Computed example of a mutant assay.
Amino acid sequence: MVVIGSATDSSSPFGKRLAANDKKTRDKAVKALGKWVSTKKEFSHLELMKLWKGLFYCVWMSDKPVVQQQLSETLSSLILKVPRSSVMDFIATFWQTMCAEWHGIDRLRLDKFYYLLRRFLFYSFRMLKENDWDLEAVEEYTNVMINGPLNATSQKMPDGIRFHLIEIYLEELEKSVDVAHSGEVPTAHVLAPMFHLLGHTINGKVFKMVAEDVFESILKKTAAGEGEDSDFEDETDLTVFDKDEDEDEADENEDEDEDMAEDGEGDEAEAEAEAKAMAEMETEMESEDGEEPSTTFDYDLIGIRERLATVAADEETVEQNRRKVDVLYKAYQDFCPLDEDEDDNEGEDEDEDEDAA
């Protein structure tokens, strides 16, 4: 069980107040924190680690769905106030804290932390948007995710967080930018953590989720947006896994969050009511903000196709994943065929390989 008192060493001058039992004290600390973050020029890594420790317990202590949701919004939006020189470390220490504390979260508190992860991902994308999707910033951010919660091999990263991020990655990306400007998003670069998972995970469930919830989903969204102009007819061509394939493995990798319940896990009806309230408020907030995901988001299909080819050919790609990545690549190739110049270049490369052999 998590010991609330362990937050007392958090970042001065906010640590004790952020984790206080009194809501008014916590609210004042959060309000002061926003001003402090926006005026401070630089943060040390230790300061940020202590700060997120205190903020974690601030969320832990929050009651009532409305309060929890408002707090998640406030804390996540701090990403836009942190100085550029520290923002990536601010993001990295958030994920480091979440991953370190995740197994101590009881089932009744999971929903509010899932919502916090969702809003934090959204504001991370919004930060990249405010930086005009600068490729250097995008690479810095995706490296944070690859080395953190979406690392394919680290045992320190909870699968519960991995699964949730995979499920919501496209949703939050689509919410972060107007559809009219979605073509400006370098999606092949933003999806770098997903390519990393495709190539390096040995968890069949993780691979399947990335293939279906990210890459197959992009094709289906694009095809739906093109309507009658689409040549895409048979969705079964995009299915990387057979229905029954890896069924046993999926059972073995069942979300470990189900095993987190502690002695005081409480009434299941109360948990369901809490989850329902959170879902309703999230839908209401998205509706008010006009941030509903669009099926016509302009994904860089050619760039994604090329990255899939790179993953399939990479010698470091897990062998059991290679064939399946190639299936995804061919699905993208069928959807957006190589043009004549690319065909010629590909043929020249093959001839060079043959000559070299």
Rank of each mutant, 00 (worst) to 15 (best):
I302V: 14
E184A: 05
D134W: 04
S10Q: 03
Y115A: 05
L108C: 12
E254R: 15
P13R: 05
L238T: 15
L117E: 09
I91G: 01
E352D: 10
E171G: 02
E348W: 09
E167H: 12
F207S: 06
E233K: 11
N151C: 08
D343Q: 12
S77F: 03
V30H: 04
A92Q: 13
E228S: 11
V66C: 03
E172L: 06
P293T: 02
H196W: 15
T236Q: 10
L51A: 02
D229N: 13
E47P: 13
D355Q: 06
D134M: 01
K16T: 13
T187P: 11
T97F: 00
I166E: 02
I304R: 00
K324Y: 08
A100T: 09
L128A: 02
E184I: 03
M260T: 02
G183C: 10
W102D: 02
F241E: 06
F297H: 02
I91M: 15
L48H: 04
V327D: 03
E254I: 11
A92P: 06
E247Y: 12
G34A: 09
E101Y: 15
V214L: 04
D134Q: 00
E42A: 15
A32K: 15
H200Q: 13
Q333P: 01
E346P: 06
R107W: 06
Y169N: 05
T296S: 11
V37Y: 07
E291H: 04
Y57G: 07
W52V: 00
D300Q: 09
S287M: 07
S287C: 03
E247S: 12
G225I: 13
D242P: 04
A273Y: 05
I161G: 00
W133N: 00
E216K: 14
L328Q: 02
A192R: 14
D355Y: 15
D353E: 10
Y123K: 08
V185Y: 08
E274S: 13
G148R: 06
G160E: 10
M98T: 12
F335C: 04
V138T: 05
K324P: 01
Q320D: 11
E319D: 12
A223H: 07
F43V: 10
V185Q: 05
D344I: 14
A223F: 01
T295C: 10
K53T: 11
E272K: 13
F215L: 09
C336E: 14
D111K: 13
L110A: 06
H103K: 14
H45M: 03
N147H: 13
K156F: 09
E233P: 01
L219R: 06
D246S: 02
F120D: 03
M88L: 15
E350N: 03
E315I: 12
V190W: 04
G290N: 01
L150A: 11
S77V: 01
E171I: 15
D314E: 01
E167R: 12
I79N: 08
V206C: 12
V190S: 04
A277H: 11
V138C: 14
R118A: 05
E319W: 07
S12V: 09
E252W: 11
G5M: 09
L18S: 04
L165Q: 08
K16N: 07
S72V: 05
T239L: 10
E47Y: 06
F297I: 06
N143E: 14
V30R: 10
E272Y: 06
K50A: 11
W36E: 02
A224K: 15
K35M: 08
T201Y: 08
